[in-house]
Amino acid sequence: MVATSTVNRNSECLSEFADQGYDQACMDYEMEFWERCLAAPYLGAEVCEEHACQELARLLEGCLARAKASKLQCAHVLVPETLTQRVARDVLRLAAEEPCGLRGCVLDIRLELEEQQQRRCERLERLACDASVVPTFELTLVFKQDGGGWPSLREFLRIGTCFPPGMRRVLKLRPGFRLIKKKLYSSAAGTVIEEC
């Protein structure tokens, strides 16, 4: 997969990020990420795909970092070692089958939380990979919380000492995830769900 377009930094796209509460540095980083991913025609296909995979993994890690204090209400998010790289590879694999590749993707990032014997899905971010391209498919990425039993003794002793009430100390993610692909240009294609 080699793409040769640049990201459109139009005011409508940037104002959408600003409305969601992102600061200018965050918006610049996201735009630079997509420019680096999409504008590397001089690299071989394998090198370009590996570079895009690394950048996409960093973007997912940034999404989790931004969401931890705002939406997830926790101090730390523990991510299994290769989770973001595996997700990035699967996203690129699913995008390779599409007419516009990754440029036509809208990525909806969610987290399935388990609270008091109930499950709910919290939306973390929704990203359009290239605002200048009409989206051809939507990927919903669902990370899963690891309920993981009892807290460690160290965490038990720290409860309530340095975190505001109602804020979790640590949120741990499972190594598995779900990807749901929905084609936007064909009603007959249906939806593809992959559990990884």
Score class of each variant (00 low, 15 high):
Arg66Trp: 14
Phe137Trp: 04
Leu124Asp: 02
Ala65Asn: 10
Gly62Lys: 08
Glu112Gly: 01
Glu81Ile: 06
Ile159Cys: 15
Ser5His: 14
Thr161Ile: 15
Thr6Ala: 09
Glu61Pro: 06
Lys68Phe: 13
Asp90Gln: 01
Pro165Lys: 11
Phe156Thr: 13
Gly62Arg: 09
Gly148Pro: 03
Asp28Ala: 10
Arg103Tyr: 07
Gly148Trp: 02
Asn10Ile: 06
Leu102Thr: 01
Val192Asn: 08
Tyr42Gly: 10
Leu102Met: 03
Arg119Leu: 12
Leu56Asn: 02
Cys129Ile: 05
Met31Phe: 11
Met1Cys: 15
Met31Asn: 14
Ala18Glu: 14
Val79Leu: 04
Gly149Ala: 04
Gly148Asn: 07
Glu50Thr: 08
Leu38Asp: 05
Val79Phe: 04
Trp150Ala: 13
Val7Arg: 07
Gln116Trp: 09
Cys53Ala: 03
Ser11Leu: 07
Lys172Met: 06
Arg178Ile: 11
Ser5Ile: 11
Leu107Trp: 00
Asp90Trp: 00
Glu122Thr: 11
Asp19Met: 10
Arg93Thr: 03
Glu112Ser: 04
Leu127Tyr: 15
Glu97Phe: 13
Cys63Trp: 04
Cys129Lys: 02
Val7Tyr: 06
Asn10Cys: 06
Lys71Ala: 14
Phe137Cys: 04
Glu50Arg: 03
Val133Lys: 02
Ala18Ile: 15
Ala67Ile: 05
Val87Met: 01
Tyr185Ile: 11
Arg103Phe: 07
Val91Cys: 02
Arg119Met: 13
Val2Cys: 13
Val7Lys: 04
Val134Ala: 13
Asp28Trp: 11
Pro175Ala: 05
Gly21Lys: 12
Arg86Ile: 01
Ala69Val: 09
